[in-house]
Computed example of a mutant assay.
Amino acid sequence: MDHDHADPNRLGQLHHVELYVSDFETSVDFWGWWLTELGYERKDEWDGGRSWINGPTYVVIVQADDDTAAFDRRTPGLNHLAFHADSREQVDYLTECARARDDSRVLYEDQHPYAGGYYALYCESPKGLKLEAIAPDSSG
């Protein structure tokens, strides 16, 4: 199936997310790492844009025309994106990687990995978008 078109069997499920970024190269490096670790594959590439796909859902990164506006997840608008991880071990691995990267930071260290009441990584992208990687319930 061509994933650029709607699938009526996936009513209400996320089709794609498009993020405009101020620092394209840094963002592509970060998002390429994050999405690849979560099972996405490179979809398309063009001047000022990249996309990654996982099943019917894809994520697009585009260089913003106006890169002077600062992003603040605490103001009205998008606060965070949450992704399924395949295990607690994957959450732990992503946490180690996020800590080792210069363009990311782990949030809520004092409560990690249960900051939201479940096993997850909360981290920030290079420009401050909060991301979650959520482990499945270990009981089944």
Score class of each variant (00 low, 15 high):
112 H>Y: 15
21 V>L: 01
102 D>I: 05
75 T>E: 10
57 T>W: 04
103 D>K: 00
56 P>E: 13
24 F>Y: 15
98 A>P: 01
134 I>V: 15
92 D>F: 04
42 R>N: 12
88 R>L: 04
67 D>S: 14
111 Q>V: 03
97 C>M: 14
115 A>R: 06
23 D>G: 06
131 L>S: 01
105 R>Q: 12
7 D>S: 08
10 R>S: 05
58 Y>V: 03
111 Q>G: 01
103 D>S: 09
4 D>K: 11
23 D>A: 13
52 W>H: 07
80 H>G: 07
68 T>F: 02
60 V>W: 05
104 S>R: 02
46 W>L: 07
13 Q>V: 05
13 Q>M: 10
40 Y>T: 11
75 T>V: 06
1 M>Q: 09
73 R>P: 03
64 A>I: 11
77 G>R: 07
129 L>H: 06
38 L>T: 11
81 L>V: 15
17 V>L: 13
43 K>E: 10
132 E>F: 03
50 R>H: 05
73 R>V: 13
27 S>I: 03
78 L>C: 12
123 C>A: 15
111 Q>W: 12
38 L>I: 12
21 V>R: 02
81 L>N: 01
97 C>K: 13
102 D>H: 12
86 D>V: 15
10 R>D: 07
3 H>Y: 13
115 A>T: 11
87 S>C: 10
107 L>V: 14
28 V>R: 01
105 R>E: 14
91 V>G: 01
63 Q>N: 09
100 A>T: 09
102 D>V: 09
64 A>H: 08
89 E>N: 09
49 G>N: 06
10 R>V: 04
82 A>C: 08
41 E>T: 14
